[in-house]
Simulated assay, not measured.
Amino acid sequence: MLAYSAQTTTYFEPWLNFRQPCVRQLAFTIASPNLIQHLPTELNIQHAFEIHPAELWQKYYQQYQERLIELDQNPAPLLQFLAQLKSTRLGLRFEMLIWFWLQDNPEQRYHPYEVIGHSLQQIEGAKTLGELDFLLLNHQTQRIEHWEVALKYYLAEGDYTLPHWYGLNRDDTFLKKLRHFTERQFQFEHVSSLDIQQKFAILKGQLFLPNVTAVTIPAWIQTARRLGKWGHTIPQQPMYRLTRHEWICPNTQATSAPAIWWCNDLYYDFSSQQPYMYRQPALIDFVYKCYNELHFKC
């Protein structure tokens, strides 16, 4: 366990430097670290997988920064690519942003990966066993890598250990997602004639702690990433309700007036750059279950 206090921490958040909303989201997708820095010891590992360190994502951002500046001046290539996505699910948009970055890489200029396949279904007879998000060749290591990507939002309750982190739908827990990675999504050792040599989970988004000044949190939580706050009370400072895409990264300016009428949703304080998840206790189980089923990919 380790002590955590947001007031004493400086964060690497270069996505806030861009103007175009889609470019801010792309910069966040690349530069932000995973929600965890290593696998929790409470997790029973069935099929092993790895987590990229925060320093590697910072390196990839720095190598891609020049291209992001170009896209911020002319976002047309990125907008055209994202236009292929008809769904409003944030998880799928996040996956598309990863895909854009992976394939926007002339002569391995920005990163060492070559996309071998995307959304590869594994079928045995009439049964679909699963699907791989990305199969990549890492030209630096000459290894075939399997990546699974997810954008998740979890709120801590209780003692902050792994079983006490809940998603927008309380049936979706952090523990359940990590189990799904190790039991189902990373079960494959081969794709066609190719051996999978490394497996990585790209697990980004936002974790939320109760609205208190300082807490003690598990060591597996990635503290290089700003942690949000959540609560049942309405903050005194002005906050703005975020649109769906702003859950990935808020726009440069508020897209709504300061919140007066509050509902279960994500809010943002532009002065402190602090996200706040407001929750109405009586509605948690029903409203957020419906909201999650409509808009988010598990």
Rank of each mutant, 00 (worst) to 15 (best):
M1Q: 03
L2E: 13
A3R: 06
R19Y: 08
C22M: 04
R24L: 06
L26W: 10
A27I: 01
F28M: 01
F28R: 13
T29H: 01
L39R: 15
E42M: 06
I51R: 05
A54Y: 03
Y61V: 00
Y64I: 00
E66D: 05
L68A: 14
D72R: 11
L78P: 05
L79F: 06
L82C: 06
L82F: 02
L85F: 01
T88Y: 07
F94P: 05
M96I: 00
W99R: 13
F100I: 09
F100H: 12
F100V: 03
Q103V: 14
N105T: 04
Q108N: 11
H111W: 12
H111Q: 05
Q122I: 14
A126I: 07
L137H: 10
N138S: 02
Q140M: 07
T141Y: 01
W147Y: 15
V149Y: 12
A150Q: 15
D159G: 03
L162R: 11
H164V: 08
N169K: 04
K177N: 01
H180M: 08
H190F: 04
P210T: 08
V212K: 10
T216Q: 13
Q222C: 02
Q237S: 06
Y240L: 01
T243Q: 11
T243G: 09
E246A: 02
C249E: 15
C249L: 01
N251M: 02
N251L: 02
Q253H: 11
Q253N: 09
Q253D: 04
A257E: 14
A257K: 14
A259W: 06
A259P: 03
I260Q: 13
N264Q: 14
L266G: 14
D269A: 13
F270P: 03
S271D: 11
S271H: 15
M277V: 01
Q280D: 08
I284G: 00
C298L: 13
